[in-house]
Design a protein around this nucleic acid. Sequence first.
DNA 1: ATCCAAAACCGAAACGTTTCGGTTTTTCTA
DNA 2: TAGAAAAACCGAAACGTTTCGGTTTTGGAT
Lengths: 346, 346
Amino acid sequence: MGATMKDIAKRTGLGLATISSYLNGGNVREKNRIKIEEAIEELHFEVNEVARGLKTNRTKTIGIVIPELNNIFFAEIITEAEDILRSHGYATMICDCRSDAEREKEAVEFLYHRRVDGLIVMPTGRTDPGFKRFVRAGKPVVMIDRKMQDVPCDCVLVDNKGAARDAVKRLVRAGHRKIGMIAGPDNVYTARERLKGFQEAVAEMDAVADETLITGGNYTIAGGAAAMRKLYKMHPDMTAVFVTNYEMTVGAMMEINDLGIRVPDELSVIGFDNVDFAKASVPKLSIVTQPTASIARAAADNLIERLESRPVNEKADEDADGERMTVTVTLKTGFVEGRSVKTMNN
Amino acid sequence: MGATMKDIAKRTGLGLATISSYLNGGNVREKNRIKIEEAIEELHFEVNEVARGLKTNRTKTIGIVIPELNNIFFAEIITEAEDILRSHGYATMICDCRSDAEREKEAVEFLYHRRVDGLIVMPTGRTDPGFKRFVRAGKPVVMIDRKMQDVPCDCVLVDNKGAARDAVKRLVRAGHRKIGMIAGPDNVYTARERLKGFQEAVAEMDAVADETLITGGNYTIAGGAAAMRKLYKMHPDMTAVFVTNYEMTVGAMMEINDLGIRVPDELSVIGFDNVDFAKASVPKLSIVTQPTASIARAAADNLIERLESRPVNEKADEDADGERMTVTVTLKTGFVEGRSVKTMNN
DNA sequence: ATCCAAAACCGAAACGTTTCGGTTTTTCTA
DNA sequence: TAGAAAAACCGAAACGTTTCGGTTTTGGAT
């Protein structure tokens, strides 16, 4: 079917190496350039990336491993990252591991097999599902959103602790003392950070520090709903609740709806992540937002930079005992004011 | 770094062909099998898919082109499809073209270059961005959600017309006559179908047939909000509105919220797509749902079947003048009852 | 023990690139 | 215009598989 470089060489009377040189941006005499371009045009030649990959040992493909694709927070990051990477000629292979450590391991192995050049990941569990293998092979890994101690790689994080602390302080300043928190699973890095932020704020601001005001919601809609119910049953006098991701915010709102609680008169709410949902809620929700586009850009740029500058340091990497200098960037969150927080006049 | 088949051959004293045979499920003498497995274990051998791909001319990769990844409807389908494909050893390269025809064309070209074995696509525009090239090359293409006349390929559709008709009939049966519709862009297949369904129902049920009751919302949140406002301004006496995708449903709810309209007392609403959002709304929304998992499964299974059975018909395909038998499956939508439709006692 | 078909095995060629040394051509300098 | 440096060019080997003929081994049947 497709024409090969050999065909182009034959057609133009030039050598294989010259064609290759032309294709890779090397110098070629003007008249030959024209001949080559004509031949390419006529024969509809397109370079075979697979063959090239075999030879160069680079697939120009990067793997992405995420917990859930049907989660707007992740999806937004992926969209942006894919766009940037593709504009640099990199294809992306996305693997959704459904927040399951076993699947995650399979995905990483799968991508290793496929010999992707690098990885963008949001680790699901606390143990390495095989990232180290990439690092050992000199393939860059950048971790997003969550950190993992024992894998030496670049990270792009968000100031989760600060975001939570800030949100809670807002509530306290509005006069709330008894504040509930719907937390994420404690094996997830972001959940732990947000919890810390909550606790710090409670301590600093002298709000009610009661362990039972903190309920796990598992980062799911159902979990958020269950947590909301539990909190409300246990603390009917609670005046505000802080929900710490999008899914749980949706779940909590469903439950609040079912319980017939009026927001913000009876209960103030601060949610997380999704501006659109917040604006579409009645009343509009106040929420913490994450800079998804910046996260994606930081991750993609970092990866590309590592990939393109690799050849130079090849030796340097080695003698540094495999231990590269890694960089971690932490981005700031935002806050969108809604009408779901009542100011108490006490 | 990595060991190759040659290393395994040397280590075991066997021939290259034998190793290849073993790796591809061929028969090998028991004792040799053991030797091979030991060698693989010791040398940490993993077959190089890139080299294999070069030789077999199959990348075991399929491309997915969608209008928006950060759109739950699409994201859910992708998640599921990716899962199925990967379990069959296929990697997926996802390209988000942001509903832009130009980007879509680039994406298709990109994937063609990458020599993916097949394509799952949701066409953005009405003209072929290059799918035909795949078809000509004997590579299966399956179209999801939207149909395109001039590209002969398999399709997985949803009964959009029926869904819309059904939804409107529900409204009429509940006593509504003056029903607004927030429609999608008319260059999108599904939007046209939903519009047809609406019009059919209005005609059949003798509801008010006024062109100005139909407003385009562009399938976006902002569009949905604007359309809602326009509808309300023009027809304050409208008693129900049918919104025809998730984003516009969110937008419409935002606007309804802003305008202070009470649902369902002043206005009944039927939305589209996202059950979770519907349940989290106040009051719970009645919505049309789409069978995302079934769509994904139908598409992925179809593709795999075409790919795995290809070698046999290779010849048959050809002499059929490139015109293969294509199949279109149409799936049924669902309906989730909420509390957003008022029953009029007139 | 002998023979034969079937099963298992083998090496070499090929897939379409890049790259390495080495050769030719061009261009510049004196 | 001769000579040399630089630029352009070249073919062959290599990347790690699969596959094609052909050869050897195996295990029954005689």
